[in-house]
Design a protein around this nucleic acid. Structure first.
Lengths: 100, 100
DNA sequence: GGCGTATATACGCGCAAGGTTATGCGTTAG
DNA sequence: CTAACGCATAACCTTGCGCGTATATACGCC
């Protein structure tokens, strides 16, 4: 699975958001997604691991997950060429508004 | 389907890339993806339409597709908060290299 | 009108993704 | 030492996606 597919799943985006605030244990993440069971969250975390979006560090019995945001850079790299499109659109709109 | 899922499909990313260069008819796009049949491409274009990533304009018998890059902005908006993470990482790396 | 071309839709299929329940395995607590 | 905890994996089920084939629809031309 590649980064685009990994991020396409809403629960996984949620996990990324949570880990952007701070590191969390697997258990904390499970508690943060009450609509899912523990194995479901565990599997999402595996996907995020395998796509290089998070990293794990054992802490005794627990596992501490941390964001590796460099993975998202691959998406950003792909979008970058298109960014100028809507930027110029917005610029044109702004100019239009200012000219009135 | 949302924008993230739309863009998760490699063929659809390819279509977006092609339409970023210039507008194209459906037939041109079909020819540009030789590994897919005409109906397959047509359905991908439907997804891109329904997620607001492209727009269509009839030209007699043909249909001209054009990119609506604003749709990608929703992805960009989501990524924006994370961008500072790898930026600071890269800055740190650059500083490290320069200090040698 | 009738026929070829351009594009979209219908239908059926295979497969992988995501979910749950059950279970394994290492670690901590008592 | 053993029972409970924390987490991952296994096995299974269901659903939705992406594909191809076949068919419909719309337009352009003679």
């Amino acid at each position: 699975m590649d980064v685009f597919e990994a991020v396409a799943e809403p629960h996984r985006r949620h996990l990324i958001t949570l880990l952007a605030e701070r590191e969390r244990t697997a258990g904390e993440l499970v508690d943060s997604l009450p609509s899912l069971t523990q194995p479901a969250v565990s599997r999402h975390l595996r996907v995020l691991r395998e796509t290089g979006l998070v990293e794990v560090r054992p802490d005794g019995q627990r596992r501490i997950y941390a964001l590796k945001p460099e993975g998202l850079q691959r998406i950003d790299d792909w979008i970058t060429p298109y960014r100028r499109f809507w930027r110029t659109h917005l610029d044109a709109l702004r100019q239009h508004l200012e000219s009135e």
